[in-house]
Computed example of a mutant assay.
Amino acid sequence: MTLRAHWQARTLRWLQQRIPPSRHYSLNLKSVFIFPSWFGWGYLLMCGCLFILGTNYQNNLMLLLCYFLLALMLITLFTSYQNFARLTIRATPVKPVYAGEPAMLALMVRTDADEKPVHGQIEVTWWQQPAPLTVDLDSHPPHFSLPYVTQTRGIIKLPRVTISSLFPLGLYRCWTHLDFQQTLTVYPRPIPCQVTLYPEDDEGSDTSSEQPGHDDFYALRGYQVGEPLQRIAWKNIAKGGDWVSKTFSQPQRQTGCLRMSGGEPVETALGKLAFQVIALSEQGAYFGLHLGHIKVPLGSGDAHKHQCLCALARFPGLGAVP
């Protein structure tokens, strides 16, 4: 472990104790950090130069200007903290995405009704990541989303979110690192392929049959008393034939289980299975999923689709499928 990685791990452990994970934060003295910005350090250097010049030349106006600037910086210290500490931040659960798609962490920023509103801009970014999202608290709606770029499938614990502000004069930087206890499920990237269903007990080709329905004409049969009149074959009766009624059929839903194909890289096989799960769910098929010791029973619907995709996201292993 490098020195930088060791320092980051130690910092995260310290933050875990100081700012515990939560879905909702009201910032306070314990969770807010404040320090002069680069501009603030330059400001202090300028005040030091004014003090030296005023003392050397015994110029009271220059000394008065130095003291005034220092007093302004001291007042800004309290103003910056009070403005930032009024923030209340809440996160909503992040939705699963496919590998390569950005996940969106929805955040809501507000203040208590009995407090003054928060002013200025805040910068929101992930822990030690560049390209922050800038939010104007005076004109921006209280809801915004922070994107998280995904590359590989799996169950990812999202890092801490860094929120900072330079309000009002940029002399101080207030910031905090918040852990919203968000776990992101990243599904495998779908790879187009042919859909293949196997019976639960034995591998084979997928099957489908006809069942009674109302989609396609199937055959004529003898009329039975009480059947709907719209099913009677009136043309046959008009020609002097017997009373018969029309029967219809519709294809039976596909049933079976999805299995991993052998001889392929694991990620490729999982991507193909993800595509088949999506395709079968759109068709309303009744299917299951077998991934070695991981088995998802037969089912259908949106909840079943996400259950199968979650099983694919959690599947371990690298290399090729035996």
Rank of each mutant, 00 (worst) to 15 (best):
A85E: 03
P36C: 07
E115L: 08
K295N: 11
L318D: 01
G154K: 05
L45H: 15
Q211A: 09
A131Y: 11
L69P: 05
I34W: 06
Q182C: 04
L61I: 11
L289Q: 01
E203R: 13
A285L: 03
P141N: 12
C193F: 06
L280Y: 03
C66L: 05
M46F: 12
P251K: 04
Q250C: 10
Q194L: 11
D112Y: 13
D206I: 02
K116M: 12
G299W: 01
G263A: 09
G317V: 09
E282W: 07
Q276G: 01
T196C: 10
G54F: 03
L171E: 00
W243K: 07
P251T: 07
I163T: 02
Y187V: 02
L229M: 12
T111F: 03
G262W: 03
F51Y: 10
V321T: 15
S300P: 01
I237H: 01
G154P: 08
L12C: 04
D112F: 07
D114T: 13
P190A: 04
T162I: 07
P102R: 06
S139P: 00
P297R: 07
H290Q: 14
G262A: 08
F144L: 06
I52Q: 09
L184F: 07
V97H: 03
D215E: 15
W126T: 01
L298G: 09
H293F: 08
G204P: 06
M108Q: 13
G120Y: 00
Y57F: 15
Y81K: 03
Y25I: 13
I163P: 00
E115I: 06
A5Q: 15
L298P: 00
E210F: 15
H304N: 08
W41Y: 15
K116L: 13
V97S: 06
K305Y: 01
V186R: 03
R4A: 13
L72H: 07
G241A: 06
A274T: 03
V149F: 08
L280T: 07
M62S: 14
F180E: 02
D136L: 00
L318I: 14
G120R: 00
C47Y: 01
F287W: 14
R314Y: 14
L72E: 10
W41V: 13
P265Y: 00
G226N: 08
P117G: 14
E203D: 14
L69Q: 05
L184N: 06
G42A: 11
L50H: 01
V296L: 09
A303I: 11
C193K: 05
F33R: 07
P199W: 04
L289N: 09
Y218C: 13
A320D: 15
Y286D: 05
V321G: 05
L69N: 06
A106V: 04
Q254M: 12
Q283W: 11
V109D: 04
P93V: 11
H119E: 08
Q254R: 15
A9Q: 15
M73F: 10
I156P: 08
K30C: 11
G222N: 14
S80Y: 00
Q17C: 07
Q252K: 15
F33T: 08
S300R: 10
F68K: 09
P316R: 00
I122M: 09
W243A: 13
G222M: 00
A303R: 12
